[in-house]
Computed example of a mutant assay.
Amino acid sequence: MELLEVAEAFGLGEPLRTHALRGGSSSGAWRLDTQDGAWLVKVQPPAGDWWARSARRAYELESAAQASALPLPRPLLPPDPAIGFWHDAGPYYARVSAYVPGRTARLGDPGLAEWLGGTLAAVAALDLPADLADDESAPLHPPADWRAWAAEARGSEVADAAQELLPAVAEATGLVRAAEAGAPAARLGHRDTGLANILVHQGSFTLIDWDAAGPVIPWWDAVHTALRCAGGLDAPGTTDAAAVRQTLAAYRAAGGPVGAADETAFAGLLRSTLAFTAYTLWLALGHRGGDAEFRAQGARRFRASADSLHRALGSLPEWQT
């Protein structure tokens, strides 16, 4: 991939310097400085129809957020052919946005909780319809699928963890299904609002990386995000309860839609954790290819994610208070 090609296609001006932010030659992100400014360039290889649908959803939400002056990096419209904000360059897709300076947010940053709650409410207020059933990136797999994967895992390094996880999967899946049966309509949301995607610069916050946008129940998303940004998903007893309350109070004050303050409020968190845990189990089992080290890495990620699911279920009584 040639950044010169991207600069020319998007009309960014003559390149001066580049700095790799993550990834390698076929996918990743770079800061590109040109005579006309500083830009964030992201590239990735083609990823199929599901990715194209996801990119169009992200374009819809990001465009609406920009039009409503939400705090996000300014995305550049791509040249044709394009999918959403991504230019189809043949062997790869590329997108460009204005580069935003700053460091990643940290728990305890002054004003973070209030800003976070207000921003979540503002995203919900965009009121873009969505459907949880259309969420290909985070499906709710039936327990029968998990039992089949656990059987497949026999004799592998994740055999015990996969088998021991089945009761937690059944409990979490049942809770999510019950909650979704009586849930309000879903809306498009950012879905990856964590500290790593919030930049702080001169006292201002910016929400970056909107590419994971998809359907959420706004209240569930607010609860999930408040816990995530307050350390609630890290380890038992690490939740900054005051930060959670401040975030949700700001969300309510800004007019964010509110639901029940019971275990159903955590359905979004559990659904997300279930989907990611399934993905990591597939990696460990070789469903996504890769060599032995790649599968071993998947196994480590699976065990960590399985621990997160156990911890989340065990923390529900504490979180409800």
Score class of each variant (00 low, 15 high):
W219S: 06
A249C: 11
R191V: 02
G256R: 11
L165H: 04
P236F: 04
R187T: 07
H224F: 15
R295W: 09
D291A: 00
Q297T: 15
H190A: 10
A284N: 04
T173N: 14
A278F: 06
A243I: 10
G214T: 05
Y251R: 02
T247M: 05
R288S: 08
L166F: 01
A172M: 02
E180Q: 12
G237L: 13
A185T: 12
R295A: 13
A253S: 09
P218L: 10
L274A: 04
L281Q: 04
T225S: 11
L175P: 09
L270R: 04
R288N: 07
F266K: 02
G286D: 08
F205D: 07
T239N: 01
P218H: 00
V216K: 08
Y279Q: 12
A241T: 12
Q246V: 13
G182P: 00
D192C: 09
A179V: 05
R191A: 04
H190E: 10
N197I: 10
R252N: 03
L188E: 12
A254G: 09
A235M: 13
D211E: 14
L199M: 08
I208T: 13
Q297L: 13
V169H: 08
R295Q: 15
T247C: 15
D240F: 01
A284D: 03
D209H: 01
D262C: 03
T193V: 15
T173Y: 12
V200Q: 02
D192G: 04
R228L: 11
E180I: 03
F205G: 06
D192F: 07
L274K: 02
Q246Y: 11
L281N: 13
G174E: 06
S272E: 15
A265Y: 01
E263C: 11
I198R: 07
R187S: 02
V258T: 15
A213K: 07
V223P: 05
A260W: 00
F294R: 14
P184C: 09
V244T: 00
P218K: 00
A267R: 09
L207E: 01
D192M: 02
E171P: 07
L199A: 04
A170S: 00
A168T: 03
D209S: 00
S204Q: 14
